[in-house]
Amino acid sequence: MTGVGGIVADLVADVDALFVFSPSGANFEEIRATVDVPVVVVDTENAVGAESFIELPLQFTDVREQIRFALEGGIDQELIDTGTMVLCAQRLFDDGLDSFTRVRAGEFSQTGIYDLFVNSRAEPSVIRAVLEVVIGLGKKGQKGKPVGALFVVGDAGKVMNKSRSLSYNPFEKSHVHVGDPIVDVMLKEFSRLDGAFVISDSGKIVSAYRYLEPATEGVDIPKGLGTRHMAAGAITRETNSIAIVLSESDGLVRAFSGGELIFELDPEAY
């Protein structure tokens, strides 16, 4: 015996729920057979067929972000409430679960990151695909130079009515959806020019080169962000869309919903 059992016992004492992140099938079977508190699986897909499941939009590299997302998801799905003491089992290094975190569900203020993915007008898979495209753009840039981009996702009809065309729309009469293999290359090329991409609820790319004209009055975004972010924040306040922005100056990806900045992440970390 190593004598550290006492510390671990403290860690796991009277937890109300267990969140398991990306377990393998065997892991999960073992946990389900032995653990008496409710078990919630958090993963990009429900491969183990768990009853309680929270879908991650992408594999977070930041453990804090991942836990935060899972807790918000748990509260949103009413699996837990803010008072619940949750034990998170995760894999940091090797293949098995190797780290445990004890956290109260109300520890973080609700940012709406889970809400953004799951309860937006657009389908979660569409938002996920757009986020992946933007992260890809942020990583590679355009021929090594940093690029900026603005994607408005969902409620496309209204967004189109609150914007105007800067140039001939390359996606007119096309049937391209985000997530199609060719799209990455196309979007990368088109991101060279200014303007926003408009994407419908089902993921169809409606237009590129849109100049957004929402009323920016009363939109409160953090100081230091430019007009692209201002436009993104404002359009999400005027319509039921969400906006995902890649900043040209600092290279970060930010998501807006309801006029508010919901989260920001560094594409280099993914």
Binding site: A156, G157, M160, N161, V206
Partner: peptide, 9 residues
Amino acid sequence: LQPYTIGDT
């Protein structure tokens, strides 16, 4: 043939 498209009234 898209007689109407997203955004049209």
